[in-house]
């Protein structure tokens, strides 16, 4: 199986879906002639031209709203945020119009739009460019939120998202764009709401989404090697829909949970998961559900300190040891 980068996987998904469906187009800042701020769309403009790759001015509210309007008439726009951090200037469009129009019309219309881009800290760009709004977005019924943690998932989930008839927000990671994974050449789709068990284990469940799943896998390695603890690692893949079944099955097996995310803790995804676990698997818990998240302050710029702010394997191990 060929090894390709996360960036290439997203690009392949876009190229395949553009070729497959004439209603699919990509729009965003610098996506066409500049080849993408993070080169995710490199070469696509050359291949597909102006109609399918559209450079938008710096008007997130304007072009996201335009995409939602276009999707009402059956187009399938894939809108790129250079950073998901820029979604805040488009909130009304994303989270009033994108998430609620179908509902407020009594189901008379659909919004088959994909909004994608990187949503991560860890690149020393300060608080304004380091947002992880998956919890905010998932708080809005009507929206689907997926957070691929690797190239294989990024491709399969992107293709699923583009074909879906609901608005899907895809949160990627600039830190992962250059990393390589095995990705098959033949076509595949990955379901939303189906978690991926990265490693089976029996002693503790490390549950995570996005890049934190990779960090958790690293932590599981340390737990096994140094402490003889057999951790199960679950990558949720999508926040909403949520694979509650896999979470609960793991809790029932290991009886201990740490939830790991690069988001801030307050009302974070981990808070929701912890709530579900205590509510639906209380008798199976041998310890409180623990959480590891970004340290609860605006994202700091200073390089060594931002490394500390974002969960690393050592912090996960430490937290796991508290309950093992």
């Amino acid at each position: 199986m060929p090894l390709i980068t996360y960036r290439q996987a997203v690009k392949d998904a876009l190229a395949e879906e553009i070729a497959r469906d004439p209603n699919v187009f990509v729009m965003g800042e610098e996506v066409a002639q500049y080849n993408g701020a993070y080169k995710v769309t490199e070469g696509l403009w050359d291949k597909f031209g102006d109609k399918r790759l559209v450079d938008a001015p710096i008007s997130e509210a304007g072009f996201v709203g335009l995409g939602i309007g276009a999707s009402m008439l059956g187009l399938r726009p894939v809108m790129e945020f250079m950073f998901w951090s820029f979604c805040y200037v488009a909130f009304d469009q994303l989270l009033n119009n994108g998430s609620f129009c179908r509902y407020m019309s009594g189901g008379l219309m659909n919004i088959p739009i994909v909004v994608r881009g990187p949503a991560n800290g860890g690149t020393n760009v300060g608080a304004t460019h380091s947002h992880t709004p998956e919890n905010l977005c998932a708080n809005h019924p009507g929206i689907k939120v997926v957070c691929p943690s690797n190239a294989y998932d990024a491709k399969g989930l992107m293709k699923t998202a583009i074909r879906d008839n609901d608005p899907v927000f895809v949160m990627e990671s600039t830190v992962l764009y250059g990393q390589k994974w095995e990705v098959p050449e033949e076509e595949y789709l990955i379901p939303m709401g189906k978690a991926n068990i990265l490693k089976e284990g029996k002693d503790i469940s490390l549950i995570a989404h996005g890049r934190a799943a990779i960090t958790s896998l690293e932590a599981a390695g340390i737990l096994a090697e140094k402490y003889d603890i057999d951790a199960e690692v679950i990558d949720l893949r999508s926040i909403r829909p949520l694979d509650v079944e896999t979470i609960l099955a793991s809790v029932k097996k290991t009886n201990r949970v740490v939830y790991i995310e690069e988001n801030k803790p307050f009302c974070g995804v981990g808070a929701q998961i912890a709530s579900i676990i205590q509510d639906e698997a209380f008798d199976h818990l041998d310890a409180p559900v623990k959480r590891v998240s970004a340290i609860d302050a605006p994202q700091i710029y200073s390089m060594p300190l931002e490394k500390i702010q974002i969960p690393d394997a050592a912090r996960i191990v430490k937290k796991a040891l508290e309950i093992c």
Binding site: F25, K51, A61, G62, F63, V64, G65, L66, G67, I68, G69, A70, S71, M72, L73, G74, L75, D92, Q93, N96, N97
Partner: peptide, 18 residues
């Protein structure tokens, strides 16, 4: 939301042209 429908309408026009 005041003005929020205007980008949507622009998108409807975009789709017609597309």
């Amino acid at each position: 939301i005041v003005g929020g429908q205007i980008p949507l309408g622009t998108g409807l026009a975009f789709a017609l042209k597309y």
